[in-house]
Write a protein that binds this DNA or RNA. Sequence first.
DNA 1: ATACTAATACTGACCAGTCAGTTCTATAAA
DNA 2: TTTATAGAACTGACTGGTCAGTATTAGTAT
Lengths: 217, 217
Amino acid sequence: MPRKDKRRQIMQAAEKLFATRRFHEITLDEVARIAQVGKGTIYLYFKDKDDLFFQTALAGYDDLCDVLEQRVPCDAPFEEQLLIACREISKFFQRRQQVYRMIQVEDARIPWCKGNIREAWKEKRQRVVAALSAIMRRGVDEGKVRMDIPAEAMANVLMGMLRMQAIYLVDHPGSERHIDFLVDLFYRGAGWVGGSSPPLEAASVEERNQPQRLRGF
Amino acid sequence: MPRKDKRRQIMQAAEKLFATRRFHEITLDEVARIAQVGKGTIYLYFKDKDDLFFQTALAGYDDLCDVLEQRVPCDAPFEEQLLIACREISKFFQRRQQVYRMIQVEDARIPWCKGNIREAWKEKRQRVVAALSAIMRRGVDEGKVRMDIPAEAMANVLMGMLRMQAIYLVDHPGSERHIDFLVDLFYRGAGWVGGSSPPLEAASVEERNQPQRLRGF
DNA sequence: ATACTAATACTGACCAGTCAGTTCTATAAA
DNA sequence: TTTATAGAACTGACTGGTCAGTATTAGTAT
C-alpha cells in the first residue's frame, strides 16, 4: 500500500464529510471509516484534526488553480479568457461543492487562525486572484478594460461575484448558464446599455467626484 | 432585572466570541463569563448552543436590515439610493465585523443545517436582497438600469461584491472609500469607459449570443 | 526474523447541559 | 414603613457522554 493512496483516501473522505457538516460534528472515527483506514493511520499523515481540515481545503484551492491555469488559453483574446475562466471556476464549484464550501466558510475565518496556516491560505488564494488579475491586465493591454481601477481590485470583485454565483447554484440547480450573465454584468455593468449610459456621479450624491485611482488594495 | 438586559448581554458576549474563534472553540462557560451571567442563565433564554449561535447571527442580519431601511431615503433618485445603501452595508460590516463574519460563514452553511433555522435564515437574507432589489427596480423605472437581467439577480450579485469588500477591509483598513469604486464597477462595469465600450460577445467566444433574459433566479 | 505499517483498543480531558439551591422582586398584610 | 410570602430569575458545581489523541496489537513484506 503506497503512502500516496492512503493519504488521498483520507483527504477525499475528509472533504466529503467536512463539506456536509460542521467541523465539530465530524469525528475522526467517521473519517477513518469512510476512508476505509484505521484511525491511527490518519495521524501518520496529519498532525491533528485541524491539520487534516486545512490541508484538505488548501488542496482543494490548489486544484482550482490548476484547472484555471490549464484550461484558460493564454494566447486567446481577453473576452474569451475572461469567460472561460469564469465558467471554469463556476463549473469547478459545481463539481466540488465541498471544496467551495470549505473555502467559502474558512476564507472568512482566516484572519484569526494560527500563523502558518493563515499564510499558506492567503498564498493559495492569491494564486486564483493572480490568474484573474492577469486576465484583467490583458484586457487593459487590449484597450478593452478600464484602467482607473487596478486589475487586482477588479479580479477580487469578480471573485466575490463568482462566489455568489456558487451559492445561487445550490438553490437553483440547472441554471448553470447564468454565469454568462454574471460575466456580462461584470464587464458591462448594471447601467442602461441602450444609448450612452448616464454617469453614476449624479449631482445629488455629494463627494462622488473622487479621484479615479484606487489607493491601496 | 428585566429579561431583556440579560438576553442582550448574552448575545453581545456570544457575538464577540463566536466572531473571533470557531464554534467548537467557544465554551458556554466562556460566554457566561464574558456576559457576566451564570452559565445556567443562558439556558433560560436559549435552547442550546446552536440556538444561541443562530439567534445571535440572525439578530445581526436583522440589524443590518433595519439600518438599510432607515438610512436609505425612499424618495431619493436611484444613484443616491444605490450608493447610500452600499455605503451603509459596508459601514455596518466594519462596525460589526462579528456579524459580518457569522453571516459570511454561516450563509454558506445554511443548505444543510436543520429545518426551521434554515428557513429563518433564508428569510432574513431575503430582506437584505429585497431592499437592494427595490433600489434596482427603481433604477429600471428611472431608465438608468438595464432590464435584461432581473433586479433581484443584480441585487444578489451586488451583495456578493459587498461581501468581498468586507473581506478586503479586514486586510486593508483605512480604505473605506473603496466602496465607491466598487459601486462604480457594479454600475458601469469593467468595460473600457472612454468612447463606446466594445461589446462582450466577441466572435471568438462561441455560444455567447444567448437570450438576453435570465431563466430562473 | 525483523522492520515497518495498518487497525484496534484505550484513556483522560473536556464540555454541553442539568438541577438543587440562592437571590432578587413584587405584592400584600400589619 | 416594615415584615412576610410567593415565585420568578439566577447561579455554578456536578455529571455523563463524547472524542481527540495514543498505546497496543496484528499484519505484511523482505
